[in-house]
Design a binder for these strands. Structure first.
Lengths: 107, 107
DNA sequence: CATGAAGTACGACGGCTGTCAAACTTCGAT
DNA sequence: ATCGAAGTTTGACAGCCGTCGTACTTCATG
């Protein structure tokens, strides 16, 4: 079941607010979260619409994983990404909703 | 009424989420907001409990002011700070509450 | 097995930002 | 009028972080 190609995922309850804000302050990472929230299924790394190189994207996925925001797993050669919605909401009620809701285009 | 010693305050509705997250990602600035929320009255710059020099504190107050989070005004020589709670909540519902609530000491 | 696809790891580099000290300004009180 | 208290401004510096290219790894498939 465990795929040793993927480093361990932290429990969102062990993540600090500092770590979460540092993760979400980057627009590229917020875009990843937003795309995941809008999608009906998990998304593989290569299928995101991102304005950065592959290696930079890898970096962003790691930051989000270590902040307890996404879960990663392999499916063939594709690395899939899932938003850890419920677990995260339980640890930080309302935070994700408030941020995503605020991601509006300013008038 | 206007005190030209204080630069203009933006309308929170004109502030971007990016700007707000950049403001709140700094622990010193979050501490300022937390102290303001816990207080029953406005607080002058010099009365905050902050681990930085006076000039650095000035910098942090400006960032918070420009992010629409605090209002500053003079009272004698003291520069007072007020949390713009209602205005900010109207522009970004739930955001401040969720962040302050998450500022718990991890078990 | 050889080849290609999908990502990761590793430096390296540039810019931003938090920090401070020092000099300055403004106001109130003596 | 002077002096001190309260902050600001400016300039400098250090460290961090996002970025990229290149090399590497792992797997699936012909």
């Amino acid at each position: 079941m465990d795929d040793d190609r993927i480093p361990p995922h932290p429990d969102p309850r062990d993540v600090t607010l500092q770590q979460i804000l540092e993760a979400l302050v980057d627009p590229v990472r917020r875009s990843i979260v937003t795309q995941l929230r809008a999608a009906s299924a998990d998304i593989k790394c290569g299928s995101f619409d991102l304005p950065v190189s592959k290696s930079t994207a890898t970096h962003h996925f790691r930051v989000l994983r270590e902040a307890g925001l996404i879960r990663q797993y392999y499916q063939g050669t594709a690395r899939m990404n899932a938003l850890r919605r419920d677990e995260f909401d339980a640890a930080f009620p309302g935070l994700l909703d408030a941020i995503v809701a605020a991601e509006r285009v300013p008038a």
